[in-house]
């Protein structure tokens, strides 16, 4: 059960130096969160669902070229642009810093999708379908969303809740980095990442590995970017959405000839 006096504040750090663009997080998310199978048709119509996606950028010109990868998921912004535009209060910020989507309140106006600068909110254009056998692998802890509503990354809140209950049952301790990793209560993408490029933690916990990055980025906001001691930055920082996800810059040991 969430602690009312001292709530968690969940956050994530994504180290782009470690990301190889392998898409393991995308597959893990798809399996964990009952996301329908994306067919070729869905992609061609640009209506594929992915709660976390790997954005691919090319740098340079062939043959002097490099691929860059960036996993993008819901940033769980503190000043989330999607929240004030919802006419039915289907998306709101909870006390644990999560941007929550309540599926049963959603009426499918798609204002939030249009107002999200990161394009991480997905609309269910179709009734969710799986091949008959795959229905047996649906995660019972996650709602199967119906057609006509918006959905997005939840930071795998079902795992966080399970973690809170199980840790509480074993003696009322508080979830921290160690207990999250020990019980596999990390979000599915974090758990699946083979290079540990994704880190998840509680910013209210002083010992968490992600806190130094958030402290550094918060201490040097906006134009103070060059004074930062870590490689941290936020996506579209100038929009002041204050995401709970921080990216760490890639260090290029072998830069392209002639720079970029």
């Amino acid at each position: 059960m969430p602690n009312a006096e001292h709530p968690h504040k969940w956050g994530m750090v994504i180290d782009l130096d470690k990301c190889t663009g392998c898409q393991a997080c995308v597959v893990a998310c798809q399996a964990e969160n009952n996301i329908p199978i994306n067919t070729k048709d869905y992609f061609l119509q640009r209506r594929a669902y992915e709660w976390i996606r790997i954005e691919r950028y090319w740098e340079g010109e062939y043959p002097n070229i490099k691929a860059r990868f960036m996993p993008v998921l819901c940033q769980h912004c503190e000043n989330a642009p999607c929240e004030p535009v919802c006419p039915v209060y289907a998306t709101y910020h909870n006390e644990e810093g999560l941007n929550v989507q309540v599926y049963n309140r959603c009426v499918g106006t798609r204002y939030c999708i249009n107002n999200c600068p990161y394009q991480v909110r997905m609309f269910n254009y179709w009734h969710p379908n799986w091949p008959a056998r795959l229905e047996n692998q649906l995660n019972p802890d996650v709602t199967v969303r119906t057609r006509g509503i918006t959905e997005k990354c939840t930071f795998c809140v079902q795992r966080i809740r399970r973690g809170e209950i199980e840790v509480e049952a074993r003696g009322g301790q508080r979830l921290n980095d160690e207990r999250i990793a020990g019980g596999n209560y990390d979000p599915a993408c974090v758990q699946a990442c083979p290079t540990n490029a994704l880190m998840f933690g509680d910013l209210e916990d002083q010992g968490t590995a992600i806190k130094p990055y958030f402290d550094d980025v918060n201490a040097h906001p906006g134009h103070g970017e060059h004074d930062r001691e870590t490689r941290g930055y936020r996506l579209l920082e100038e929009m002041n959405t204050r995401p709970s996800v921080i990216y760490l810059k890639k260090i290029d040991q072998y830069p392209l000839k002639g720079g970029h």
Binding site: M1, P2, A4, Y92, N94, E95, E96, L98, V100, V102, Y103, N104, D141, V142, T143, T154, V157, Q158, R161
Partner: peptide
Amino acid sequence: NNVSTDCTICHK
């Protein structure tokens, strides 16, 4: 009983 009534307690 002073338990959280956040939506994500029951709806996930």
